[in-house]
Protein backbone atom coordinates (compact mmCIF):
# COMPACT_ATOMS: atom_id res chain seq x y z
CA UNK A 1 0.00 0.00 0.00
CA UNK A 2 0.96 3.63 -0.50
CA UNK A 3 1.27 6.42 2.04
CA UNK A 4 -1.66 6.46 4.45
CA UNK A 5 -2.87 2.99 3.51
CA UNK A 6 -3.81 0.80 6.48
CA UNK A 7 -1.14 -1.81 7.00
CA UNK A 8 -2.00 -5.46 6.92
CA UNK A 9 -0.87 -8.90 5.86
CA UNK A 10 -0.19 -9.75 2.25
CA UNK A 11 -3.35 -9.81 0.12
CA UNK A 12 -3.37 -11.86 -3.09
CA UNK A 13 -5.10 -10.47 -6.19
CA UNK A 14 -8.69 -11.68 -6.60
CA UNK A 15 -9.13 -14.83 -8.67
CA UNK A 16 -12.29 -16.35 -10.16
CA UNK A 17 -13.73 -18.87 -7.70
CA UNK A 18 -17.05 -19.50 -9.45
CA UNK A 19 -17.34 -19.23 -13.23
CA UNK A 20 -20.55 -17.72 -14.63
CA UNK A 21 -21.14 -20.71 -16.91
CA UNK A 22 -21.27 -22.99 -13.88
CA UNK A 23 -23.59 -20.74 -11.87
CA UNK A 24 -26.37 -19.64 -14.21
CA UNK A 25 -24.60 -16.35 -14.90
CA UNK A 26 -23.25 -15.52 -11.43
CA UNK A 27 -19.48 -14.99 -11.42
CA UNK A 28 -17.62 -14.74 -8.13
CA UNK A 29 -14.01 -13.73 -7.71
CA UNK A 30 -12.35 -13.14 -4.40
CA UNK A 31 -9.42 -13.05 -2.04
CA UNK A 32 -8.76 -13.02 1.70
CA UNK A 33 -7.34 -10.22 3.84
CA UNK A 34 -6.18 -9.74 7.42
CA UNK A 35 -6.02 -6.12 8.52
CA UNK A 36 -5.20 -5.34 12.13
CA UNK A 37 -6.56 -8.64 13.32
CA UNK A 38 -9.79 -8.36 11.30
CA UNK A 39 -10.23 -11.20 8.82
CA UNK A 40 -12.25 -10.64 5.67
CA UNK A 41 -13.27 -12.40 2.50
CA UNK A 42 -13.27 -9.77 -0.27
CA UNK A 43 -15.66 -10.74 -3.05
CA UNK A 44 -16.70 -9.37 -6.42
CA UNK A 45 -20.08 -10.59 -7.65
CA UNK A 46 -20.88 -10.14 -11.33
CA UNK A 47 -24.24 -10.78 -12.94
CA UNK A 48 -23.63 -12.25 -16.40
CA UNK A 49 -27.22 -13.44 -16.77
CA UNK A 50 -30.13 -11.70 -18.50
CA UNK A 51 -32.19 -11.10 -15.35
CA UNK A 52 -31.74 -9.34 -12.03
CA UNK A 53 -30.22 -11.27 -9.11
CA UNK A 54 -31.43 -10.84 -5.52
CA UNK A 55 -31.56 -12.64 -2.16
CA UNK A 56 -27.87 -13.44 -1.81
CA UNK A 57 -26.61 -15.52 1.11
CA UNK A 58 -23.40 -17.42 1.88
CA UNK A 59 -22.46 -20.45 3.94
CA UNK A 60 -19.15 -22.26 4.62
CA UNK A 61 -18.68 -25.96 5.10
CA UNK A 62 -16.78 -26.89 8.25
CA UNK A 63 -13.04 -26.51 7.74
CA UNK A 64 -9.62 -27.01 9.36
CA UNK A 65 -9.49 -23.78 11.39
CA UNK A 66 -13.17 -23.03 12.02
CA UNK A 67 -13.36 -20.16 9.53
CA UNK A 68 -16.96 -18.92 9.25
CA UNK A 69 -18.88 -15.80 8.20
CA UNK A 70 -19.21 -13.35 11.11
CA UNK A 71 -22.27 -11.75 9.51
CA UNK A 72 -24.56 -11.99 6.51
CA UNK A 73 -23.43 -11.35 2.94
CA UNK A 74 -24.44 -7.69 2.52
CA UNK A 75 -25.80 -7.27 -0.99
CA UNK A 76 -28.30 -4.54 -0.31
CA UNK A 77 -29.52 -3.80 -3.82
CA UNK A 78 -30.52 -6.15 -6.66
CA UNK A 79 -27.64 -7.02 -9.01
CA UNK A 80 -28.55 -5.98 -12.56
CA UNK A 81 -27.28 -7.74 -15.70
CA UNK A 82 -23.62 -6.79 -16.37
CA UNK A 83 -23.29 -5.19 -12.94
CA UNK A 84 -20.43 -6.03 -10.53
CA UNK A 85 -20.43 -5.28 -6.82
CA UNK A 86 -17.63 -5.63 -4.29
CA UNK A 87 -18.52 -7.04 -0.90
CA UNK A 88 -16.35 -7.59 2.19
CA UNK A 89 -17.52 -10.44 4.38
CA UNK A 90 -16.12 -10.35 7.94
CA UNK A 91 -14.95 -13.76 9.13
CA UNK A 92 -14.53 -15.37 12.52
CA UNK A 93 -12.56 -18.44 13.57
CA UNK A 94 -15.27 -19.85 15.81
CA UNK A 95 -17.03 -22.15 13.34
CA UNK A 96 -17.13 -25.95 13.39
CA UNK A 97 -13.85 -27.71 12.66
CA UNK A 98 -13.09 -30.56 10.28
CA UNK A 99 -9.64 -31.25 8.85
CA UNK A 100 -9.64 -30.51 5.13
CA UNK A 101 -7.42 -31.74 2.31
CA UNK A 102 -5.54 -29.56 1.54
CA UNK A 103 -5.49 -28.11 5.04
CA UNK A 104 -6.39 -24.59 3.83
CA UNK A 105 -9.31 -25.63 1.64
CA UNK A 106 -12.64 -23.88 2.09
CA UNK A 107 -15.93 -25.11 0.61
CA UNK A 108 -18.47 -22.37 0.08
CA UNK A 109 -22.16 -22.31 -0.85
CA UNK A 110 -23.70 -19.13 -2.28
CA UNK A 111 -27.37 -18.74 -3.00
CA UNK A 112 -29.38 -16.15 -4.86
CA UNK A 113 -32.95 -15.97 -6.18
CA UNK A 114 -32.03 -18.37 -8.99
CA UNK A 115 -30.28 -21.31 -7.30
CA UNK A 116 -27.58 -22.48 -4.85
CA UNK A 117 -24.00 -22.76 -6.11
CA UNK A 118 -20.92 -24.38 -4.63
CA UNK A 119 -17.22 -23.69 -4.99
CA UNK A 120 -13.91 -24.36 -3.25
CA UNK A 121 -11.13 -21.90 -2.60
CA UNK A 122 -7.91 -21.87 -0.63
CA UNK A 123 -6.86 -19.23 1.87
CA UNK A 124 -3.24 -18.35 2.62
CA UNK A 125 -2.36 -19.57 6.09
CA UNK A 126 -1.12 -16.03 6.84
CA UNK A 127 -4.79 -15.17 7.34
CA UNK A 128 -4.38 -17.00 10.66
CA UNK A 129 -1.08 -15.39 11.76
CA UNK A 130 -1.91 -13.37 14.86
CA UNK A 131 -0.50 -9.95 15.77
CA UNK A 132 0.99 -11.18 19.07
CA UNK A 133 3.00 -13.96 17.48
CA UNK A 134 6.40 -12.78 18.68
CA UNK A 135 7.64 -15.51 20.99
CA UNK A 136 9.75 -14.72 24.08
CA UNK A 137 13.39 -15.34 23.21
CA UNK A 138 13.92 -17.73 26.07
CA UNK A 139 10.78 -19.68 25.19
CA UNK A 140 11.91 -19.83 21.54
CA UNK A 141 15.25 -21.41 22.48
CA UNK A 142 13.62 -23.95 24.77
CA UNK A 143 10.89 -24.79 22.25
CA UNK A 144 13.35 -25.10 19.35
CA UNK A 145 15.32 -27.64 21.40
CA UNK A 146 12.19 -29.40 22.57
CA UNK A 147 10.60 -30.01 19.15
CA UNK A 148 12.06 -33.25 17.74
CA UNK A 149 14.24 -33.05 14.62
CA UNK A 150 11.74 -35.26 12.80
CA UNK A 151 9.34 -32.31 12.97
CA UNK A 152 11.73 -30.05 11.09
CA UNK A 153 10.94 -29.36 7.43
CA UNK A 154 13.29 -27.60 5.06
CA UNK A 155 12.36 -25.53 2.00
CA UNK A 156 14.14 -23.44 -0.60
CA UNK A 157 12.78 -19.97 -1.24
CA UNK A 158 14.16 -19.24 -4.69
CA UNK A 159 15.00 -16.04 -6.47
CA UNK A 160 14.59 -13.54 -3.64
CA UNK A 161 16.76 -10.45 -4.00
CA UNK A 162 16.29 -8.95 -0.53
CA UNK A 163 18.76 -8.54 2.28
CA UNK A 164 17.88 -9.93 5.68
CA UNK A 165 16.64 -6.63 7.15
CA UNK A 166 14.30 -5.92 4.25
CA UNK A 167 13.05 -9.52 4.28
CA UNK A 168 12.52 -9.34 8.02
CA UNK A 169 10.49 -6.11 7.77
CA UNK A 170 8.38 -7.45 4.95
CA UNK A 171 7.59 -10.64 6.86
CA UNK A 172 6.70 -8.69 9.99
CA UNK A 173 3.95 -6.96 7.99
CA UNK A 174 2.32 -10.40 7.77
CA UNK A 175 2.91 -11.24 11.45
CA UNK A 176 6.05 -13.33 10.92
CA UNK A 177 8.32 -11.96 13.65
CA UNK A 178 12.11 -11.99 13.79
CA UNK A 179 13.35 -12.76 17.30
CA UNK A 180 17.09 -12.91 16.70
CA UNK A 181 19.61 -12.52 13.90
CA UNK A 182 23.10 -13.97 13.78
CA UNK A 183 25.72 -13.85 11.07
CA UNK A 184 27.83 -16.99 10.75
CA UNK A 185 30.35 -17.48 7.95
CA UNK A 186 28.72 -14.88 5.71
CA UNK A 187 25.19 -16.22 6.24
CA UNK A 188 22.51 -14.27 8.07
CA UNK A 189 20.42 -16.60 10.21
CA UNK A 190 17.03 -15.19 11.17
CA UNK A 191 15.10 -16.88 13.98
CA UNK A 192 11.40 -16.22 13.64
CA UNK A 193 8.07 -17.12 15.17
CA UNK A 194 4.46 -17.25 14.05
CA UNK A 195 1.35 -17.98 16.10
CA UNK A 196 -1.84 -19.25 14.51
CA UNK A 197 -5.31 -18.24 15.69
CA UNK A 198 -5.78 -21.71 17.20
CA UNK A 199 -2.68 -21.28 19.39
CA UNK A 200 -0.26 -23.37 17.30
CA UNK A 201 3.27 -21.91 17.34
CA UNK A 202 5.57 -22.16 14.32
CA UNK A 203 9.33 -21.61 14.71
CA UNK A 204 11.53 -20.85 11.73
CA UNK A 205 15.11 -20.28 10.75
CA UNK A 206 15.77 -18.44 7.51
CA UNK A 207 19.29 -18.43 6.04
CA UNK A 208 20.24 -15.63 3.74
CA UNK A 209 23.64 -15.68 2.09
CA UNK A 210 24.94 -12.47 0.57
CA UNK A 211 24.75 -12.68 -3.21
CA UNK A 212 22.72 -15.90 -3.19
CA UNK A 213 19.07 -15.34 -4.24
CA UNK A 214 18.04 -18.75 -2.84
CA UNK A 215 17.23 -18.81 0.87
CA UNK A 216 16.86 -21.87 3.07
CA UNK A 217 13.85 -21.96 5.36
CA UNK A 218 13.73 -24.50 8.19
CA UNK A 219 10.44 -24.82 10.01
CA UNK A 220 9.85 -26.54 13.32
CA UNK A 221 6.32 -27.05 14.58
CA UNK A 222 4.55 -29.48 16.85
CA UNK A 223 1.89 -29.73 14.13
CA UNK A 224 4.23 -30.38 11.15
CA UNK A 225 1.34 -30.58 8.67
CA UNK A 226 1.13 -26.78 8.71
CA UNK A 227 4.80 -26.28 7.73
CA UNK A 228 4.39 -26.38 3.95
CA UNK A 229 1.54 -23.86 4.16
CA UNK A 230 3.70 -21.52 6.24
CA UNK A 231 6.44 -21.89 3.61
CA UNK A 232 3.90 -20.88 0.93
CA UNK A 233 3.22 -17.68 2.89
CA UNK A 234 6.94 -16.85 3.08
CA UNK A 235 7.13 -17.19 -0.71
CA UNK A 236 4.01 -15.09 -1.30
CA UNK A 237 5.09 -12.32 1.07
CA UNK A 238 8.73 -12.17 -0.02
CA UNK A 239 7.81 -12.22 -3.71
CA UNK A 240 5.04 -9.60 -3.37
Amino acid sequence: GGVGMPTGSYVAPKTVWLAAMKAKGLEISGTFARRGGIIQMDLSLTNKAMSVMTDFAIQFNRNSFGLSPAGPLQVLTPLSPNQTIDVSLPLSMSGPIMKMEPLNNLQVAVKNNIDVFYFSCQYPLSLLFVEDGKMERQVFLATWKDIPNDNEAQFQIKDIHLNSDVASNKLQGSNIFTIAKRTVEGQDMLYQSVKLTNGIWVLAEMRIQTGNPNHTLSIKCRAPEVSQFVFQCYELVLKS
Binding site: R137, Q138, L141, W144, A180, R182, V184, E185, Q187, M189, Y191, E205, S218
Partner: peptide
Amino acid sequence: EMDDGLEEAFSRLAESRTNP
Protein backbone atom coordinates in the same frame (compact mmCIF):
# COMPACT_ATOMS: atom_id res chain seq x y z
CA GLU B 1 23.21 -10.72 32.60
CA MET B 2 20.32 -13.01 31.85
CA ASP B 3 19.93 -11.28 28.47
CA ASP B 4 23.63 -11.82 27.78
CA GLY B 5 22.98 -15.50 28.32
CA LEU B 6 20.17 -15.44 25.75
CA GLU B 7 22.34 -13.57 23.23
CA GLU B 8 25.01 -16.21 23.70
CA ALA B 9 22.48 -19.04 23.36
CA PHE B 10 21.29 -17.71 19.98
CA SER B 11 24.91 -17.46 18.82
CA ARG B 12 25.49 -21.06 19.84
CA LEU B 13 22.29 -22.16 18.05
CA ALA B 14 23.34 -20.39 14.83
CA GLU B 15 26.86 -21.87 15.08
CA SER B 16 25.54 -25.37 15.66
CA ARG B 17 23.21 -25.09 12.67
CA THR B 18 25.99 -23.91 10.37
CA ASN B 19 28.57 -26.43 11.58
CA PRO B 20 26.61 -29.38 12.92
